[in-house]
């Protein structure tokens, strides 16, 4: 997935994607990647807004494509966000709701706790890797309470600071700092 598609996805998160971009996204050859990225972002958003988990892992691209084409969707009564008027339809508001509902706000976090296995992969790719004989247990940070999160954040920020000023990494370090602060935790 290239940066432009990523931008489109990001814009969709913010209700700002234009139709052309969305079509391009939907015609992307690796729909699984697109869905994957979308879901991960939705999970973050879900977490930020403290939403509860709905259905996860549903592919809504077909439904969205139909909406874009102005065709009536074959959907169940239970879909509350079905756009009634395709003509006056605006991409963001309606489809976003549909998509969000279908994809579901996962209980995941920006923290890649789901990536535990990746560590093992890294390790096994390297021969003679004594440092990585066993996979590292990962902590599900979404379970942290407020105090714990603050405590953890302080470490993150101090480290980011070391990087920005100390490492001379300039803006990269600052960006890490901002990224660590986030805007919704």
């Amino acid at each position: 997935m290239d940066d432009r598609l990523r931008e489109t996805l990001s814009a969709m998160m913010d209700d700002e994607a234009d139709e052309l971009s969305v079509r391009r996204l939907l015609s992307h050859s690796r729909q699984d990647e697109v869905c994957d990225q979308w879901q991960r972002w939705q999970q973050v958003r879900g977490l930020m807004h403290k939403n509860h988990s709905l259905a996860e892992g549903v592919d809504v691209s077909g439904a969205v494509r139909e909406v874009l084409d102005g065709r009536p969707r074959r959907i169940s009564e239970s879909d509350p966000a079905e756009p009634r008027s395709a003509a006056r339809w605006q991409w963001p508001a309606v489809a976003m709701v549909t998509m969000a509902l279908l994809v579901g706000f996962g209980a995941g976090a920006g923290w890649e706790s789901a990536d535990t296995k990746a560590d093992t992969t890294v390790a096994s790719a390297e021969p003679n890797n004594s440092a990585a004989e066993q996979p590292v247990d990962e902590v599900a940070l979404q379970g942290l309470d407020q105090e714990q999160w603050e405590h953890m954040s302080r470490y993150l920020l101090e480290h980011a600071q070391h990087n920005s000023v100390g490492a001379g990494r300039g803006s990269v370090g600052y960006a890490r700092l901002v990224s660590a602060t986030g805007s919704g935790y």
Binding site: V136, D137, E138, V139, L141, Q148, H151, S179
Partner: peptide, 12 residues
Amino acid sequence: AVRMPVGASRIG
């Protein structure tokens, strides 16, 4: 006072 969980976590 704050007890922290032990283990690893990752972001990026």
